[in-house]
Design a protein around this nucleic acid. Structure first.
Length: 497
RNA sequence: GGGCCGGUAACUCAGUCGGUAGAGUAUCGGCCUUUUAAGCCGAGAGUCGCAGGUUCGAGUCCUGCCCGGCCCA
């Protein structure tokens, strides 16, 4: 559909005119040899005289971002992946036809290729003096305003391509995201972990407490669930004899969207045989510390209003102590259900009273009262066993799990535990859980019998951890919202954009 | 789910007490050989998120809905 907008109509008319003139409209035979950033880096200190001696013909392709006509001179800026560089189209330097073509038919937003030598302008800007130019792709829609760019958050997310064209800091952020992910991947590979891919579609959505997305497989005539966690498959691999594995990919949870949640998010899970959650704390400290040095050049980074220091060792606090000492919940309240209910009510915290697990109530209080206070990297340890169905019991106190969660800047970033490898205990835990399905719809509706069978073949003692990659990227790019670190965050559909 | 804020030209935004819908950018025509948010002269461009209501008259007031943002749960 051709849009009503006058500006867009003009572009379509130009394209039609070019077609009638016999121009090949979308050529793909221009091979740029140079990049804007490298040209500027290398030649910025050259004088005009030095540049004149250089006979090399530069060639560069990119998007026209600005155009300033000055009679027989037209200054413009081209943006490629690396940077923007000024070009000068001068009537004295190219054919009259090409000059007129550039003036009349090449618009801001078009992709062009140029060839020419370098000059330095009066103001000292490195500039390509164009000898040869070619329209590579005509843009049929105008770019946003050149000074303010694209600011509307909704439009930025819905049309990320325009956001990326207009806002270099957004391009930089997503490059940083990729560097973070590559660094983490390299770290695990160099530590001897095997990167694996396990199913995204599960017959039973297990490994976490969350509502899954449901999909349907026609040929098998069965429902499948988009995975909420790869955990149970990765442990099968530990059973199978791989001793160090990791998977770095998407999970899907059917929950609302917010500045902290996107229904699909990137998760790292890794499992290590013959290791404990204590070992994983050390590994996590090492990973984040070196990541901070790699990405930010310092162990200390700024996130919003906080300075966060990744220098190990990090503080450790027991789950219940955190609730009493940091959350301000009196100890006598903690173990008395009636007092607990009243306390929560006073604080305006809603407990699921149908759920008999006091550990669930504690978790709620923890989320409300403690989480926001955990700014510096903090390991919360000793979680109640009833909210840790896949974790190993502590040898001294079997009501608690050998588990930690990592909090940074008030956000849960990682969750790890020594893995439960006793198949009988695992079955009991699943069965206990299943009884509570009526009061907690996030509990998987079915026991994963194949997983238990796998454990019955014997899983070596091991520990595993999940790290929320989007949250890590938020922290390292100082982003207040998860949508800023996801290229195409989910929004409600809108037809009339 | 609740509260607050926003949605006006392709983009960024004004729009007073309810009285003919504005600016800059972009576009179109013209001038200009060192501009860089270029400048100057001129022109065109609107489902004021959607649907109702109040009113002689609604971008503006009221109600409902849609989309987004922030905060809370």
């Amino acid at each position: 559909m051709i849009e009503e907008s006058q500006v867009i109509k003009v572009r379509h008319e130009k394209l039609q005119k070019l077609k009638e003139m016999g121009l090949k409209l979308y050529p793909n035979d221009f091979r740029p040899k140079d990049k804007a950033k490298y040209i500027k880096d290398i030649y910025k200190n050259f004088t005009q005289e030095e540049l004149e001696k250089k006979e090399y013909e530069f060639s560069l392709a990119g998007r026209l971002m600005a155009k300033r006509e000055m009679g027989k001179l037209i200054f413009a800026h081209i943006q490629d992946e690396t940077d923007r560089i000024q070009i000068l189209v001068a009537k004295s330097e190219i054919s009259a036809e090409d000059f007129k073509f550039f003036k009349k038919f090449v618009d801001i937003g078009d992709i062009i290729g140029v060839k020419g030598r370098l000059i330095k302008t009066k103001t000292g800007e490195i500039t390509i003096l164009v000898k040869d130019l070619k329209l590579l792709t005509k843009a049929l829609r105008p770019l946003p305003e050149k000074y303010h760019g694209l600011k509307d958050t909704e439009l930025r997310y819905r049309m990320r391509y325009v956001d990326l064209i207009m806002n270099p800091e957004v391009r930089e952020l997503f490059k940083t995201r990729t560097r973070i992910i590559q660094y983490i991947r390299d770290y695990f590979i160099s530590e001897g972990f095997l990167e694996v891919e396990t199913p995204m579609m599960h017959p039973i959505a297990g490994g976490a407490a969350a509502r899954p997305f449901i999909t349907y497989h026609n040929a098998l005539d069965m429902n499948l669930y988009l995975r909420i966690a790869p955990e149970l498959y990765l442990k099968r691999l530990i059973v199978g004899g791989f001793e160090k594995v990791f998977e770095l990919n998407r999970n899907f949870r059917n929950e609302g969207v917010s500045s902290r949640h996107n229904p699909e998010f990137t998760m790292l899970e890794f499992y290590e045989a013959y290791a404990t959650y204590e070992d994983l704390m050390k590994r996590t400290e090492e990973l984040f510390y070196s990541l901070a040095l790699e990405i930010k050049g310092s162990a200390k980074i700024t996130y919003q209003d906080y300075e966060i220091d990744f220098t190990p060792p990090w503080q450790r606090v027991e789950f219940l102590k955190a609730i009493t000492e940091l959350g301000g919940v009196p100890e006598e309240v903690l173990y008395n259900k009636e007092k607990l209910i009243n306390f929560a009510k006073e604080k305006g915290i809603e407990l699921n009273l149908k759920d008999p697990r006091i550990g669930k109530w504690w978790t709620k209080l923890f989320e409300e009262l403690v989480e926001p206070k955990l700014i510096q990297p903090t390991f919360v340890i000793k979680f109640p066993i009833e909210v840790s169905p896949l974790a190993r019991r502590n040898d001294e106190n079997p009501d608690f799990a050998d588990r930690f969660e990592l909090y940074i800047a008030g956000k849960e970033v990682a969750n790890a535990f020594s893995e439960l490898n006793d198949p009988k205990d695992q079955r009991i835990r699943f069965e206990e859980q299943l009884k509570l399905r009526e009061v907690d719809e996030e509990i998987p509706p079915e026991i994963d019998e194949d997983f238990i069978r796998a454990l019955e073949y014997g899983m070596p003692p091991c520990a595993g951890e999940g790290i929320g990659i989007d949250r890590v990227v938020m922290i390292f790019t100082d982003s207040p919202s998860i949508r800023e670190v996801i290229l195409f965050p989910h929004l409600r559909r809108k037809e009339d954009l």
